[in-house]
Each structure stands twice: as structure tokens, then as C-alpha cells.
């Protein structure tokens, strides 16, 4: 491979092989999972032949689709609410010190410090005491709590490294502070916002313990559904739904890429 001298990576020898190893490690289980979703045998550990039957089984399984839909609704709602709240908070926190700042900062990261199982039980008891009916809404409320710090930290990290002069300059040049935000702060901030939103979404989609406890009748999410299925062993059905989730994610991401292209 030709060395690109404009990219300083070449000076650090270990970096590229390490990144390659990282992606291999990351995708190895995914490849196994994809391959096994085409396994004819019901038992995932025994390969008997190629088949696409599990995909039709999954698409026919209304319970599983309902669970997947629940998961997406919860993930998207919690991500949107949490990302907005976290972005605002990060901007408020990033400039200068104020009295009680460390207390506020601790509050913002509190959900990360509490083990999931404690959060789950505490939230369940709390919802009952204040009389919230358990269901999708209660899960969204609980997920938003732990999504806020996951969105907040990357945004804050991004803001901390930003040159304050840029915003000052913007404030000098634009009469309207909303415009300053839209034209300067936000474009600079968005890689942080994007990684924050992504983190939130993933963690919500993946959550099992909290949804399990805070959920009510009819709010089974995909992790809970899959948890129920693996009691007899992981079946190709589970692999197939995972593969479908991957495809949805790739489509979702590609669309956002396309929209981006058109706008620029």
C-alpha cells in the first residue's frame, strides 16, 4: 500500500494494524451471526444446510415485530428527548464557572453511577408510588434518564475543545444569537451531538434490565422477547431478526447520508 504522507498516521506504526484488529474483533461475532441466520437447522450450533426460511418465519411472527417496533419507538423517543436536553445543558455548562456547578455536573452524570439493577427497581417502586401506569411511556421516561448523560458527555467534550473566540466572533458578526447558534455553534458541535445521540440510541435499544422491570402489559421490547426465546437456546430466528435490525440500521444511516448530500 502506498503511504499517504499528508496523513500523519504513517508516523505512528502501531495505529493502523490496531484499527484493523479492532474492526475484525468488532465484526467477527456479527459475521457468525449473519451466517447462522441462514442455517437450516433449528439449533444454532449445528450447521446442516443453507436456508432463508427463518426470515419468513420472523416476518410472520407478529409478536416479534411488535417487540421490535416497541424497541424502536422507545429508543427514538428517548434519544430525541435526551439529546435535546443534553445539548442545552452542555451549552449552559460549558462557559465559565458558577456556584453549585459541580453539584449540577454530578447530577447530570448521576444515572451513569447507579447500577442498572438498582435504577430498575428504584424506578419501578417510584412509578408505582406516584401512580404511573407501567407501559411504553414509563419505559421511555426511564430510558431518557440514562440517555441524558450518554448524550451529554460527548457533546460536552466537544464543546470544551471548541475555541470560544469563534462564538464571540459570531456574536460580533450576527445580530441575532439564534443565527450565531445555527451558523456557528451548532455546525461545530454536531459531531458531538451525533455521537451523543448514537450512544443514547444504542444504549436504549440494548437495555434489558430496566425495560424488564419498568415495562407493563404489552410493552415487551426486543431484548425482552429475545431473552424469552433463548431459554431454549439461540435459534436462527433470533439471528434473522438481528440481521434485519442491522439492515434497518444501514438503511437508516444511508438515508441520513443522502439527505446530507442533497442539502450541501
Amino acid at each position: 500500500m502506498k503511504i499517504d504522507r499528508t496523513n500523519p498516521i504513517w508516523r505512528f506504526h502501531g495505529i493502523t494494524p490496531m484499527a484493523i484488529f479492532f474492526f475484525a474483533y468488532l465484526y467477527l461475532p456479527i459475521i457468525v451471526l449473519l451466517v447462522l441466520s441462514f442455517n437450516e437447522n433449528r439449533l444454532a450450533t449445528i450447521w446442516t444446510g443453507f436456508s432463508t426460511q427463518w426470515y419468513s418465519v420472523v416476518l410472520d411472527n407478529s409478536d416479534m415485530l411488535r417487540a421490535a417496533q416497541n424497541s424502536l419507538v422507545i429508543g427514538l423517543s428517548a434519544t430525541v428527548i435526551a439529546t435535546i436536553a443534553a445539548t442545552l445543558a452542555a451549552m449552559g455548562m460549558a462557559r465559565g464557572r458558577f456556584r453549585g456547578e459541580s453539584g449540577v455536573a454530578a447530577m447530570l452524570t448521576l444515572p451513569l453511577l447507579v447500577p442498572e439493577i438498582v435504577t430498575a427497581i428504584a424506578t419501578l417502586l417510584f412509578f408505582i408510588v406516584i401512580g404511573v401506569k407501567l407501559g411504553l411511556i414509563s419505559i421511555i421516561a426511564a430510558h431518557t434518564v440514562f440517555c441524558i448523560p450518554f448524550a451529554y458527555l460527548p457533546i460536552r467534550a466537544r464543546l470544551d475543545g471548541m475555541d470560544p473566540a469563534l462564538i464571540e466572533a459570531a456574536n460580533d458578526l450576527y445580530a441575532n444569537e439564534w443565527q450565531a447558534f445555527k451558523r456557528v455553534t451548532f455546525p461545530l458541535l454536531w459531531p458531538g451531538i451525533l455521537s451523543g445521540a448514537m450512544l443514547s440510541f444504542i444504549i436504549s435499544l440494548d437495555d434489558f434490565v430496566i425495560s424488564y422491570f419498568v415495562g407493563g402489559a404489552g410493552s415487551t421490547t426486543l431484548p425482552i422477547y429475545i431473552f424469552g426465546m433463548i431459554r431454549i437456546g439461540i435459534t436462527p430466528e433470533v439471528n434473522a431478526i438481528s440481521a434485519l435490525m442491522l439492515i434497518i440500521s444501514i438503511i437508516f444511516v444511508s438515508i441520513s447520508f443522502l439527505i446530507d448530500r442533497i442539502r450541501y
Binding site: F23, L28, I30, V32, L33, L194, L205, P223
Partner: peptide, 22 residues
């Protein structure tokens, strides 16, 4: 970045099972 996040669209239980098979 999307390559980093894509595997996490599958469920944690499923990923753990994939590791068990590996």
C-alpha cells in the same frame, strides 16, 4: 463512526451468544 456503531444494533444477548459460539 457508523461502522463502529452498526454491530450494536443487534442485541446484547445475541452478541454474547455469538461470542459463546466463537
Amino acid at each position: 463512526i457508523f461502522l463502529v456503531t452498526i454491530p450494536f444494533w443487534t442485541n446484547i444477548l445475541v452478541r454474547n451468544y455469538a461470542w459463546m459460539l466463537l
